[in-house]
Amino acid sequence: MSVNKLGKFAVVGLSAAWLAGCSTTGANTDASTATTATNEGSATTEQAAPADTDKSATYGANQDNSVTSVVDNQQDKAKNSKAMLDGVPTVFYFDFDKSIVRPAAREALAKHAQYLIDNPNVHAVLEGNTDERGTREYNMALGERRAKAVARYLTIQGVPASQIETVSFGEEVPVAFGHDEKSWQLNRRVEIRYEK
């Protein structure tokens, strides 16, 4: 999957998520009953890999215009910059119980930093994740620390902190489901997601 493609779908998915988020903010202070408390997760769509695949099937090539029309008047610049992110990884991996950005990630992160500097309207969400080992709330904190380590790297490169948000999913959103080092390594990660 090319990063370019991923980026576009992320924009579509995230706009949808953002809209959904807006439309449900009222529900945050609700007193809804247990049985009505369903479908909390409109924003999960862009998380699950299969959902992304569904989306790419739905949004065919002819949908590209509608995608870019969401990306207001910065579109030309954004397009150029996005091409710059072609082939640049958006997932960065970590050692067990560590939150140190690996040297191998620096080059790619520098490109993300440049993209954010060139596109001040673009907002990056850094999602920190852990493997399943250890306890859930500790992993929530560890995931956050990883996301913050990446955020720090980006701000050192000159990205304004206001363009970056860090969130942690702890061990709750794995991408690999095995109970072995191979799966664990894939899950110990920070993903960069772009929002507009």
Binding site: A20, A31, A34, A37, E40, G41, A43, Q47, F169, E172
Partner: peptide, 18 residues
């Protein structure tokens, strides 16, 4: 989680009010 952000809720079991 709500919109992929963790939130804390308190809920009354009998009524489901939260």
């Amino acid at each position: 989680f709500k919109n992929m952000r963790p939130r804390i809720f308190i809920q009354e079991l009998a009524t489901g009010k939260r």
